[in-house]
Design a protein around this nucleic acid. Structure first.
Length: 1021
RNA sequence: GGGCGUGUAGCUCAGUUGGUUAGAGCGCUUGCUUGACAUGCAAGAGGUCACAGAUUCGAGUUCUGUCACGCCCACCA
């Protein structure tokens, strides 16, 4: 049974979200280990390329006012390694303190040699396979980090902006034709890179299509929607009347090849016809900037002749392809200048205010500039190609592609996603089969193992190719080094690429001596993460680990990386090893802060698990987390700081939660937080994190500890089979059989819940059983039994057994407490079990997982015990209602059938023990005492009436009030049942047993009502 | 625009396939130094299960619609 840890990023310390994720993994691993599986929990961390470099660079700038260029590649990478060492140690320390039972000696890092070997191998195979290519693509350019970031690393934020309308003069318009074309933009500076203006090729049919769509909608629309749609129809018609002929004129001009003057640049650009121009929007004409807009890029792809002009430098300033006066300006300045100059030229038509959804880089938080750049891609879609066999025949190979392989794995359940609803997102994302841009212009990561050389002309191309094939001294070996090139017709301007499979300094030098230059870019972090399940097991070597532990069993992770990580692991596993990397994926809930925001390292709103452990203990943290892991419900955690000086608690706020030191709101003294870095801050006492949700776990741990302590004290005089106190089935009392029955059920429920990732169910079941049944009843009852010599041995053996099973069941969730109790229990009761005692093993973490003994499950016994609990409850309620102190002994009688009386009779000591009460009479003829407080109960065999003698204490008013309330309640119930039974439909159609149940209930309630009436009459009299 | 999720006690949340009087923890009220535990024990108050309709003998649970909130994806000259 294997789990690979989702390797935490070394960007920073772990927060509660990670604590949840890792606790759940540890629970699974510990249970499986106890079940006898050969378990492996593979630990490690992720270099998190862009995120880590961003963090280190930002600190460098803040603390030393230096940029990465001041340090150079080597210097910066050294700094990042220092950072990594520090945070990796901290992360692993956090995991250890949480009790994570990883195989620590196997700890890996996505940038270590073993992972690097795997990365290079996969890259080489893809390269060889034609799935890696280089292309000019529009990328999301982060001008701060000066790298491309993927769509997934971009977030959109609404900002207030403007919508500028410019007009471009038409060159040589015919009479009657417009002299200007109006366009609109939210990014005016990009006009410097315009290469065309587009209008729709067929406005009439575009309008037709739009109105057809609207009418189709109208048919299905609700009344409310109809009004809206009709409005739209009117608008569209109006617009068509006003615009169509004008747009058609423009279209005709485009077809004729009319040019426009692009203001400020001295360039002329064509007016073209392309469907991207929407006749229903704006002026119907749209400027085309292929190098800086994704849609315009597409237009360019369809209209190659217009070309593309990249106007930006990597740092976000304007480059030499714009007129002199704009060069070197940043986007903001350039925008102001362009708008001012357009206005001066009299070409500014209007400025509108507008909310703009602006793309920002997730890492640097700066606006993204769409930017045309060379990028490496992994092809995700299908490839078809021919392979020549030895006879020279060409065989067509169809390869469905990487994305399809990963989709199939989930569709046919080789990988099960739990909860299932997350399948859709996975399949939809892969279904797009978008190529994966894998290069990052960073210094922290796996450098792309490709060497490139430019060439020009066919002659040079041939030379380069020949040269490549002679690089390897032993002759060109496609298994060590792979070559491909691409060029542009008709100039043969192109690039040759060599990929080297393994790190090989000599070979690399050889390649470089021929004028090849190594790619500076590094690979996207997810490229190495995708290999995690196999690289950690030693792939590409065929290690014993890989054979034994792959495919892994379960992956426990967060929903926001299902696509980025999970899907790509499936791809990499299938591609490289031919098998899925894991059979099940469990998606955890998300931990939100008190504002409902997800915890994240970059926001700094994460709560350090160590601060929780400090206050409540690791077991409390773990149990609390398991307790709230329901069906992937997100969970809000409200967290307070606890002042280490005065103990005052106050809320973590957006302001204070990222500070290294805080002054207490009450006593004013400073304390440190997880963010403390400077020695003077670290020297301060640190605040604990207080959270109500973990109090439950802390209290539970305390309860268990005390129950164990009580048990241990009373087991010290342990009676083993050898000292005469041997276990005999016949010695078991009702409460023993009840406990064994419950224990069997609980064992079964907990095992099943954990098997199906229902962590909260398991935790709740254990909590309720341990607290409300084991402690509140069984342990309590042993007190009376230990006083009786002939019952002691059985009670002790039972108690040791129950504690033993409970500790084993709780161990995955609470490893610390259970281990401690296990050791102590081993001292007083080295042999455990009922009929056949056996020596306990030396640690609970390798003890056998309890098996549910179905033979012990007994509903009748449980019902009988419930009768006892009900009678006890009645006595206790009488005491409370009448406000009688515990030290005052009460007397009561129980009128019930003979069988129940036989059960209750032996319970006398417990009534004394647990309610300080004594049953004067039990049985069918039991009389109510002089001044009774009466409780009609529903027993298993029939009605049970409990009459508590309160003659010494009676508070008539209170009792009357209680009885009246009870009477009202019963009357309501009876009415409701009578209603049901008078309903012929119910009697006819409901299952017979449900009807019978209602009939029984009615009889019983009527009896109880009569009893209440009697008591009320007696009270009045 | 497409998809997913959520709305149950003052708060944070459970509630399996429809079937007794809808539960827990915290908070609140009352009473307890009962010999493992005041991080505890005992008792109690507190709910029109967002709203409307439908299906059904019967709906917190199924279906449709409405409202509110959250997340993901796409688009936005």
């Amino acid at each position: 049974y294997t789990i690979v840890i989702p390797p935490p990023n070394v960007t920073g310390a772990l927060h509660i979200g990670h604590a949840l994720n890792n606790t759940l993994q540890d629970i699974l691993i510990r249970m499986k280990r106890m079940q006898g599986f050969n378990t492996l929990w593979m630990p490690g961390t992720d270099h998190a390329g862009i995120a880590t470099q961003a963090v280190v660079e930002r600190r460098l700038l803040e603390e030393e006012k230096k940029s990465r260029h001041d340090l150079g590649r080597e210097g910066l990478v050294k700094r990042i390694w220092d950072w990594k060492d520090k945070y990796e140690a901290r992360i692993l320390g956090q995991l250890r303190q949480m009790g994570c039972s990883c195989d620590w000696q196997r700890t890996r890092f996505t940038l270590d040699d073993q992972c690097a070997r795997a990365v290079r191998e996969w890259f080489f195979r893809l390269f060889q396979d034609g799935k890696i290519y280089r292309g000019k693509r529009l990328v999301n350019w982060d001008t701060f980090l000066q790298t491309a970031v993927s769509d997934d690393e971009v977030f959109h934020e609404a900002t207030k902006g403007h919508f500028w309308h410019f007009k471009y003069p038409v060159i040589d318009p015919k009479p009657g034709e417009p002299t200007h074309v109006t366009i609109a933009t939210t990014r005016p500076e990009t006009m410097l890179g315009d290469t065309a203006v587009a209008v729709h090729p067929d406005p009439a049919s575009a309008f037709d299509k739009l109105s057809a769509e609207l009418h189709e909608k109208l048919v299905k629309a609700t009344a409310k929607e109809k009004v809206e749609i009709e409005e739209l129809v009117t608008k569209l018609t109006d617009r068509r009347t006003a615009m169509q002929s004008q747009l058609e004129t423009l279209r005709d001009m485009a077809k004729r090849g009319v040019l426009l003057e692009l203001p400020l640049t001295g360039r002329n650009i064509p007016l073209i016809a392309d469907e991207w121009a929407k006749p229903e929007l704006g002026s119907g004409a749209v400027k085309i900037t292929p190098a800086h807009d994704a849609n315009d890029y597409e237009v360019w792809q369809r209209n190659q002749q217009i070309g593309a002009i990249n106007i930006l430098n990597p740092d976000g300033t304007l480059n030499e392809s714009v007129p002199q006066k704009y060069r070197g300006l940043n986007v903001k300045k350039a925008r102001e200048a362009v708008v001012a100059n357009i206005e001066a030229a009299g070409l500014l038509v209007a400025i509108e205010d507008r909310d703009i959804d602006l793309a920002h880089s997730d890492r640097s938080k700066t606006p993204i500039e769409p930017y045309l750049a060379d990028q490496w891609f992994v092809k995700m879609g299908n490839t078809d190609y021919g392979v020549q066999d030895e006879n020279g025949r060409i065989e067509e190979i169809h390869d469905a592609g990487l994305a399809q392989s990963a989709m199939d794995a989930v569709t046919d359940q080789r990988v099960k996603i739990v909860p299932e609803r997350y399948r859709n997102g996975y399949l939809d994302w892969l279904g797009e089969k978008r190529d994966w841009p894998v290069g990052r212009q960073l210094w922290w990561g796996h450098q792309i193992p490709v060497w490139t050389k430019k060439f020009q002309g066919d002659e040079e191309r041939k030379k380069v190719e020949a040269e490549a094939y002679s690089v390897d001294a032993q002759a060109y070996d496609k298994e060590r080094i792979y070559f491909y090139h691409q060029w542009q017709n008709p100039t043969f301007e192109g690039e040759a690429y060599l990929c080297i499979r393994c790190e090989d300094a000599k070979l690399e030098k050889e390649v470089e001596s021929r004028g090849y230059i190594r790619e500076a870019d590094v690979l996207d972090t997810w490229f190495s993460s995708a290999l995690w399940p196999i690289s950690t097991l030693g792939w590409p070597n065929e290690t014993p680990e890989l054979k034994k532990f792959y495919p892994t069993s379960a992956l426990v992770t967060s929903r926001d990386i299902i696509t980025l990580w999970v899907a790509r692991m499936v791809i990499a596993g299938l591609y490289n090893v031919g098998e899925v990397p894991f059979h099940e994926v469990y998606i955890t809930p998300k931990i939100l802060d008190s504002y409902g925001e997800t915890m994240s390292k970059s926001k700094g709103n994460g709560v350090d698990p160590l601060d929780v452990i400090d206050k409540f203990g690791a077991d409390a943290l773990r149990f609390g987390l398991a307790y709230l892991t329901t069906d992937t419900q997100d969970v809000k955690l409200t967290v307070d700081f606890e002042c280490p000086h005065c103990g005052a608690q106050f809320a973590q706020t957006k302001k204070n939660r990222t500070l290294p030191r805080i002054e207490c709101e009450k006593c004013g003294q400073p304390f440190s937080t997880q963010w403390a870095e400077k020695p003077e801050d670290k020297a301060l006492p640190r605040a604990a994190a207080v959270c109500e949700r973990f109090e439950l776990g802390r209290n539970f741990a305390n309860k268990l500890w005390n129950a164990a302590r009580f048990s241990l004290i009373n087991l010290e005089v342990y009676a083993t089979a050898t000292d005469g106190g041997g276990f005999m089935e016949s010695m078991l009392l009702l409460e023993d059989r009840w406990l064994l029955s419950r224990l069997a059920t609980v064992t079964q429920q907990v095992s099943e819940a954990l098997e199906h990732y229902r962590f909260a169910d398991a935790a709740r079941t254990l909590y309720d059983f341990a607290w409300n049944e084991f402690c509140s009843f069984y342990v309590e009852m042993t007190k009376a039994r230990f006083a009786v010599a002939e019952q002691r041995a059985t009670a002790q053996r039972m108690l040791a057994h129950a504690l033993d099973v409970l500790m084993r069941l709780l161990h995955p969730m609470m490893p610390f407490l259970t281990e401690e109790v296990w050791q102590l229990l081993g001292q007083v009761a080295p042999e455990r079990g009922l009929a056949k005692p056996q020596a306990a093993c030396e640690s609970v973490c390798v003890a056998a997982w309890p098996e549910a003994d179905a033979a012990r499950q007994d509903a009748a016994i449980e019902a009988q015990f419930a009768d006892f609990q009900a009678v006890l409850g009645a006595v206790r309620e009488a005491r409370q209602r009448q406000n009688i102190a515990f030290k005052e002994e009460l007397e009561f009688t129980v009128r019930c059938d003979a069988a129940t009386a036989k059960l209750l009779e032996p319970m006398q000591p417990y009534f004394k023990q647990m309610a300080n009460a004594k049953a004067a009479q039990i049985g069918p003829t039991a009389e109510a005492p002089g001044v009774p407080v009466s409780f009609p109960l529903s027993g298993r065999q029939g009605p049970i009436e409990v009459h508590v003698d309160v003659s010494r204490f009676i508070d008539r008013g209170a009792e009357k009030k209680r009885l009246e309330k009870e009477r009202e309640n019963l009357t309501k119930q009876i009415g409701s049942i009578e209603g049901k039974l008078n309903n012929q439909g119910f009697v006819d159609k409901a299952p017979a047993e449900v009807v019978a149940q209602q009939r029984d209930k009615l009889v019983e309630f009527r009896g109880q009502l009569a009893s209440i009436e009697g008591s009320l009459a007696k009270l009045a009299g």
